[in-house]
């Protein structure tokens, strides 16, 4: 069970309180109507699924209920950073690989 730092609560809490919510930084296009089929596919279905650092969303379901973002290494499952929704991708320096 992972231990996750909620950037809103500023607390390390067990995974049971959280719900994974898919890849982060995939913004819903402002002009959905104008989206091509290809762009829609990329927005809704295509995922980077990296072996290494993934930027992903979590929701502190049984806590503050906020969605937030995390950078996690999918090989070790180690969290490099968690940060609030809307913040840009953090610079992970050497850790980001």
């Amino acid at each position: 069970m992972l231990l996750i730092h909620c950037p809103y609560c500023q607390e390390d809490r067990p995974e049971l309180e959280f719900r994974h919510a898919g890849e982060a930084h995939i913004a819903r296009p402002a002009d959905m109507a104008a989206l091509s089929d290809e762009d829609f596919e990329r927005f809704f279905f295509i995922r980077s699924n990296p072996k290494g650092v993934v930027f992903e969303r979590w929701r502190h379901m049984h806590g503050c209920a906020r969605f937030f973002n995390a950078a996690r290494d999918t090989v070790s499952d180690r969290f490099l950073k968690t940060y609030k929704a809307g913040e840009p991708k953090p610079d992970l320096g050497g850790e980001g690989r």
């Binding site: 069970m1 994974h20 699924n49 072996k51 999918t74 070790s76 499952d77």
Partner: peptide, 13 residues
């Protein structure tokens, strides 16, 4: 498990 991973392990829960 609920999160993506290449670790070939998961949680006890």
């Amino acid at each position: 498990d609920q999160y993506t991973s290449y670790s070939q392990t998961g949680g006890l829960h």
